[in-house]
Computed example of a mutant assay.
Amino acid sequence: MGIKPTYIKHFATDLMRAHTGRFSGDFEENKQVVAEVAVIESKCVRNRVAGYITRKQNTKKTSA
């Protein structure tokens, strides 16, 4: 897959802090939430942010 750019990580982390409880382990739901709470014109960037958030949420579930 590759390494995520730091701007994706920072943006996703900021969204997760600002909107705790709104994100889940489902990519489709996270994609909709990111579209609602952030103004991202690029569909590709929105999906990458949502994918990173989904991955983080699923990692939390398995480690907890």
Rank of each mutant, 00 (worst) to 15 (best):
V49A: 04
R48D: 12
C44A: 15
E36Y: 05
T6G: 13
Q57L: 08
F27E: 06
R46F: 09
K43Y: 13
K43W: 10
L15E: 00
K60A: 10
F11S: 08
F23P: 00
A38C: 05
E36L: 09
E28G: 02
G2R: 11
N30V: 03
L15N: 01
A64N: 06
Y52H: 08
G25K: 02
N58P: 01
V33H: 00
E28Q: 11
T62D: 15
F27V: 10
T62G: 14
V37F: 01
Y52V: 01
V37E: 03
K61Q: 13
M1N: 09
K9D: 00
F11C: 04
K4T: 07
G25F: 02
I3R: 15
H10K: 15
A12Q: 02
P5F: 07
G25E: 06
R46D: 09
Y7F: 05
G51Q: 02
A18L: 10
R55F: 07
V34C: 01
V39A: 09
T54E: 06
R22I: 13
I40L: 09
R48L: 15
K43M: 10
K4M: 10
G21C: 08
K9H: 02
E36R: 12
K4L: 13
T13H: 11
P5Y: 09
F27T: 07
G51I: 03
F11Y: 10
K43G: 13
F27M: 08
T20C: 14
K43F: 12
T6S: 15
K60C: 04
D14Q: 14
V34N: 01
G21S: 09
V39Y: 04
I53V: 08
T54F: 01
V37K: 04
F11M: 09
I40C: 01
S63C: 07
R55Q: 10
M16V: 11
I53K: 05
D14F: 08
I3A: 06
T13R: 11
R55K: 03
Q32N: 02
P5N: 12
K56I: 13
S24K: 14
S63D: 14
D26V: 08
V33K: 01
F23E: 00
T62M: 11
C44Y: 14
A35M: 06
R48F: 10
P5H: 11
P5W: 05
V49Y: 03
G21E: 04
M1Y: 10
A38S: 11
R48Y: 09
M1E: 11
E41P: 05
G2I: 07
E29N: 12
V45K: 12
V39I: 05
D26M: 03
T59C: 10
T13A: 14
F23I: 03
V45H: 07
S63G: 07
T54I: 01
G51C: 03
I53G: 02
N58I: 04
T20A: 12
S63A: 13
D26K: 08
F23G: 01
D14V: 14
R46Q: 15
